[in-house]
């Protein structure tokens, strides 16, 4: 092998960089999917079903913002035909009032920083 030191240094650097997530995975505790506290009243239904809300809540919130603030219409009709008042403070946060245990847990582990709170006031129980 020619230029042994440089080549071996390159190979080691390549292997270390490419396998870094595995090393970090070894050194930290085994990952657990965050358990969120959904709401106090288990009988109440959310505006849409769980699967939809999990995947699409951000898009729904974005649409709600546009509908309420840009079009001035504050009525949302869900898939079942039920009507809801479009409002983060009065509809969403009424039930999901635990910001740290509900919003923050998943957002933190997935490194999501929603810009809800550049206009809205952070709910109580947050930093």
């Amino acid at each position: 092998m020619y230029n042994k030191t440089a080549v071996i240094a390159g190979i080691v650097a390549f292997l270390v960089i490419c396998s870094s997530p595995f090393w970090c995975g070894f050194s930290s505790d085994s990952y657990k999917k965050p358990e969120i506290v959904t709401q106090k009243d288990k009988n109440k239904e959310c505006v849409e079903d769980v699967a939809f809300m999990r995947a699409e809540h951000m898009q729904l919130l974005n649409e709600w913002r546009d509908q309420a603030l840009r079009n001035g219409s504050r009525v949302y009709v869900n898939a079942k035909g039920k009507k809801f008042d479009i409002s983060l403070q009065n509809t969403c946060l009424k039930c999901h009032n635990n910001y740290e245990e509900f919003c923050d847990k998943c957002h933190k582990t997935n490194n999501v920083e929603p810009y809800c709170w550049t206009c809205h006031i952070l709910p109580k129980g947050s930093k």
Binding site: F22, C24, F26, S30, Y31, K32
Partner: peptide, 18 residues
């Protein structure tokens, strides 16, 4: 769309070899 919290749990499972 997909539930990325579940995806992260799945990928971390791969990364940590379980």
């Amino acid at each position: 769309k997909t539930d990325i919290t579940q995806v992260k749990a799945y990928i971390m499972g791969l990364v940590q070899f379980h």
